[in-house]
Simulated assay, not measured.
Amino acid sequence: MQPGSLFAIYSLFWMLTLFAVLPWGVRTSDEAGQARAYGEADSAPSNPMIKRKLVWTTLISAVLFGLYWANYDFGWLTIDDIPGWGRGGTR
Results as ranks from 00 to 15, higher is better:
residue 1 M to F: 11
residue 1 M to W: 09
residue 2 Q to H: 13
residue 3 P to K: 09
residue 3 P to R: 09
residue 4 G to L: 14
residue 5 S to V: 14
residue 5 S to F: 11
residue 6 L to V: 12
residue 6 L to E: 04
residue 7 F to W: 10
residue 7 F to C: 13
residue 8 A to S: 10
residue 8 A to F: 07
residue 9 I to N: 02
residue 10 Y to S: 08
residue 11 S to H: 03
residue 12 L to A: 15
residue 12 L to D: 05
residue 12 L to G: 15
residue 12 L to Q: 11
residue 13 F to H: 02
residue 14 W to N: 01
residue 14 W to A: 03
residue 15 M to T: 15
residue 17 T to N: 00
residue 17 T to H: 00
residue 18 L to P: 06
residue 20 A to I: 11
residue 20 A to H: 05
residue 21 V to H: 00
residue 21 V to R: 00
residue 23 P to H: 00
residue 23 P to G: 03
residue 24 W to Y: 15
residue 25 G to F: 07
residue 25 G to W: 06
residue 26 V to S: 13
residue 27 R to K: 15
residue 29 S to Y: 14
residue 29 S to H: 15
residue 29 S to R: 14
residue 29 S to L: 09
residue 31 E to L: 08
residue 31 E to W: 04
residue 32 A to G: 01
residue 33 G to N: 03
residue 34 Q to I: 01
residue 34 Q to S: 02
residue 34 Q to Y: 10
residue 35 A to Y: 05
residue 36 R to I: 04
residue 37 A to C: 01
residue 38 Y to K: 11
residue 39 G to P: 07
residue 39 G to K: 08
residue 40 E to N: 05
residue 40 E to Y: 03
residue 40 E to I: 04
residue 41 A to E: 11
residue 41 A to T: 08
residue 42 D to Y: 13
residue 42 D to C: 06
residue 44 A to N: 05
residue 46 S to F: 03
residue 46 S to K: 06
residue 47 N to F: 14
residue 48 P to N: 03
residue 49 M to R: 15
residue 50 I to N: 09
residue 50 I to F: 13
residue 53 K to P: 00
residue 53 K to Y: 07
residue 55 V to F: 15
residue 55 V to L: 15
residue 55 V to E: 10
residue 57 T to C: 02
residue 57 T to N: 01
residue 59 L to V: 15
residue 59 L to T: 10
residue 59 L to P: 06
residue 60 I to Q: 00
residue 62 A to K: 01
residue 63 V to C: 10
residue 63 V to L: 14
residue 64 L to W: 01
residue 64 L to C: 07
residue 65 F to M: 13
residue 65 F to K: 07
residue 67 L to W: 12
residue 67 L to T: 09
residue 67 L to Y: 11
residue 68 Y to E: 06
residue 69 W to T: 05
residue 69 W to Q: 08
residue 69 W to L: 12
residue 70 A to W: 11
residue 70 A to N: 07
residue 71 N to W: 04
residue 73 D to V: 09
residue 74 F to V: 11
residue 74 F to H: 14
residue 75 G to V: 13
residue 75 G to L: 14
residue 75 G to I: 13
residue 77 L to P: 10
residue 78 T to I: 05
residue 79 I to R: 14
residue 81 D to Q: 07
residue 81 D to T: 04
residue 82 I to G: 06
residue 82 I to V: 15
residue 82 I to K: 08
residue 82 I to P: 04
residue 82 I to A: 09
residue 83 P to Q: 08
residue 84 G to C: 01
residue 85 W to Y: 08
residue 85 W to H: 07
residue 86 G to N: 03
residue 86 G to S: 03
residue 86 G to A: 02
residue 87 R to P: 04
residue 87 R to Q: 11
residue 87 R to G: 09
residue 90 T to P: 01
